[in-house]
């Protein structure tokens, strides 16, 4: 099977620090791929390269076999790659629906939209509300309230909902459960499986081993700026994975491809 999203030989240096050292990456259609690694292993840089937020110095990224040279996140988004960033990338003073539709606003039909460029607030608010209640992620009274008036977990919910609503080819989630309580984390995991059920592959970056081993089909272990191995979570234990990523053990049956 052809990988839907792949990367070969990615290199990214920040001054004298090498964040990515000829890293490879493969995401198969319809799978949940977890990316784990120690702090500073280069996970975030890898993800940012895949979603266009960072331009790698070397290497190439392919989406459905086509070489992609994203220079900004908008291009990745237009190509169907949607990302939930660790810092959420929400504008605090804007409303929930403004945030969900930031950069892809719906305009009114007819002259009001084409000549006056008028936004269709009603349509955007309706879709935002539908999406949020579909996820059952939170109890929000007012869809036009500013994001800064929401709790941390609710903000996370808005960011996840935004990605789930618009991702058409790949959804990337960077620590999506980090700020959430037990119940909300469970919802996000269910949501991840929901997205998978719609046939969209997901890249999940997480430090939470139980979550990773529960939902992931394969686990990409990142170490010292490159892919160390890809393991099957059903054949390896969590302590194996932790040992691999910290360098305590070297995986024997490491999948090469």
């Amino acid at each position: 099977m052809e990988p839907i999203l792949s990367a070969r030989g990615l290199v990214k240096r920040y001054g004298r620090v090498t964040a990515l050292d000829h890293a490879d990456f493969d995401l198969m259609p319809g799978e949940i791929l977890a990316v784990i690694g120690d702090n500073g292993a280069g996970k975030s840089t890898l993800i940012k390269a895949l979603c266009g937020a960072v331009n790698p110095d070397e290497g190439e990224i392919r989406l459905e076999g086509q070489v992609m040279n994203f220079t900004n996140p908008m291009q990745a988004r237009n190509a169907g790659i949607e990302t939930v960033y660790q810092n959420l990338a929400l504008s605090p003073a804007l409303s929930i629906s403004d945030n969900m539709f930031l950069g892809r606003e719906i305009r009114k039909k007819g002259l009001a939209g084409s000549v006056l460029r008028m936004l269709d607030r009603g349509a955007m608010e309706k879709r935002a509300r539908d999406k949020l209640s579909e996820l059952g992620l939170m109890t929000i009274q007012n869809i036009s309230q500013a994001v800064e008036t929401l709790s941390g977990g609710q903000r996370q919910g808005v960011a996840v909902a935004r990605a789930a609503a618009f991702g058409s080819k790949v959804v990337i989630m960077d620590e999506p459960t980090a700020a959430l309580g037990v119940k909300e984390s469970r919802r996000v995991l269910e949501l991840i499986l929901d997205v998978k059920k719609r046939g969209i592959p997901i890249i999940l970056i997480s430090h939470n081993m139980p979550h990773v081993f529960e939902v992931a089909d394969r686990v990409h272990i990142h170490r010292l700026g490159r892919r160390l191995a890809v393991i099957n979570p059903k054949e390896h234990s969590m302590s194996d994975a932790v040992a691999y990523m910290t360098g305590a053990k070297v995986p024997e049956g490491a999948v090469a491809a």
Partner: peptide, 25 residues
Amino acid sequence: NYTAFGRHIYAVGDDPDAAELAGIR
């Protein structure tokens, strides 16, 4: 208040990094 450009002005002033990641040039 009623055009995308206007909302983008607010978003850029609010948090430029978030706005950039959210896909605003």
